[in-house]
């Protein structure tokens, strides 16, 4: 009798797992998060600029700021947050099985991921693209000069296949040298083990800034791939997806409207601009559909800052930053020729 029950339940569980059916959501993610008292936000093993540990043991970075902003929007307190560091093999499973509420970790928004893995991407926090780093004195001026060159790449990523595609399409006959750890890849490159390094331009810019003499190296203008890096949530809970997406839009919109963590108090008290007043909850009821308090956007800007502030702090030239220029890149505001654009808040 008992054995039968056991076998049946095992079969049921197995069926559920193998048909890929997500467990039915009895409650909305927001309710679960509110009841639990903190947001569980997934990042990966440390990656410079995006999410990294400081010597004090705190998580910081551009992607961590999104996590903190979501916690600020819901609880008005950025400490009500648990950062989970998950290996990249387990990242989407961990989101889909409910372990994480939100994933914010340099995941490229691709069609197959968006449509097949039971997850939804919200909005890119960073537009990246694959490129090449070469020594300045090598005479290489574009990707086409890499004929027969040895190129170092980290293995197990789309970077490697993009490189092979690039080599095949342009008949370059590039020989690929693969590495597990990008630190070792860069070490080999610096000692002359390869003619160029390929990787995401942003992270390579960060790596170059850590080279003994950064000015000896440059990133070629070629871009091999589009890498829109975006947070993601579980598929099927639209309110939660809205919440995360609009948290990001508040950060971008605040920058557009010139609201920073320093002047947000002043703006809330004195601004005449109706858009700012609506965003900060002085008038209107924009927060209604999200299930949050009126000061949700105020808390995001006050406690985490707008997009530009966070970019400068972690990707820009600051002490913590990795020194990727924003001017003229896709990550500038749309008013300055970039792609960072927030729909109107009304």
């Amino acid at each position: 009798m008992k054995l039968t029950v056991l076998l049946t339940s095992a079969a049921a569980v197995a069926a559920m797992v193998f048909t890929g059916a997500a467990p039915a959501l009895a409650e909305s993610t927001l309710d679960i998060v509110k009841k639990r008292g903190h947001v569980r936000c997934q990042v990966g093993p440390a990656s410079p600029g995006y999410y990294f540990l400081t010597a004090k043991g705190e998580w910081r970075g551009l992607d961590v700021s999104v996590c903190r902003a979501v916690a600020a929007a819901i609880f008005g307190d950025t400490s009500k947050l648990e950062i989970q560091s998950v290996s990249s093999q387990a990242r989407f499973t961990s989101l889909a099985n409910g372990d994480s509420d939100l994933l914010s970790r340099t995941a490229t928004w691709t069609m197959s991921r968006d449509t097949q893995l039971g997850i939804d991407f919200t909005y890119p926090t960073f537009y990246d693209g694959q490129g090449f780093t070469v020594p300045k004195n090598s005479g290489i001026k574009s990707g086409m000069d890499l004929k027969g060159a040895k190129v170092c790449v980290t293995t197990g990523t789309t970077t490697e296949s993009n490189l092979i595609d690039f080599s095949r399409t342009n008949n370059l006959n590039i020989s690929v040298v693969t590495f597990e750890d990008y630190n070792v890849r860069d070490e080999t490159y610096l000692q002359g083990g390869c003619d160029a390094v390929t990787g995401d331009k942003s992270s390579m810019a960060g790596n170059i800034s850590a080279f003994p003499v950064p000015s000896d190296h440059m990133i070629l203008p070629d871009t091999l791939s589009k890498e829109p890096l975006s947070p993601a949530v579980r598929h099927g809970d639209n309110q939660w997806a809205d919440l995360v997406r609009w948290t990001q839009f508040v950060m971008i919109g605040a920058e557009e409207m010139g609201v920073t963590s320093a002047n947000v108090d002043d703006m809330r008290a004195n601004s005449k601009d109706p858009a700012i007043r609506r965003m900060l909850g002085v008038e209107g009821n924009l927060q209604k559909g999200l299930g949050l308090n009126k000061d949700w956007a105020y808390n995001i800007i006050k406690l985490v800052g707008n997009y530009g502030e966070n970019y400068e702090r972690f990707m820009g030239k600051g002490k913590e930053g990795i020194g990727i220029p924003r001017e003229g890149s896709l990550n500038a505001l749309w008013t300055k020729g970039g792609l960072m654009y927030s729909p109107p808040m009304r």
């Binding site: 093993p45 440390a46 990656s47 410079p48 600029g49 990294f52 540990l53 400081t54 010597a55 910081r60 989970q84 560091s85 998950v86 290996s87 387990a90 750890d181 630190n183 860069d186 070490e187 960060g206 790596n207 800034s209 850590a210 080279f211 972690f314 600051g318 002490k319 913590e320 930053g321 990795i322």
Partner: peptide
Amino acid sequence: VSIIGLFDVLTILRSISKDGPWLGLHQ
């Protein structure tokens, strides 16, 4: 255990090279 996201001593050591001020400090 670093594989499943626990921060044992080796994971912490490898995180140093990703911390802003000490970027690339892995050897």
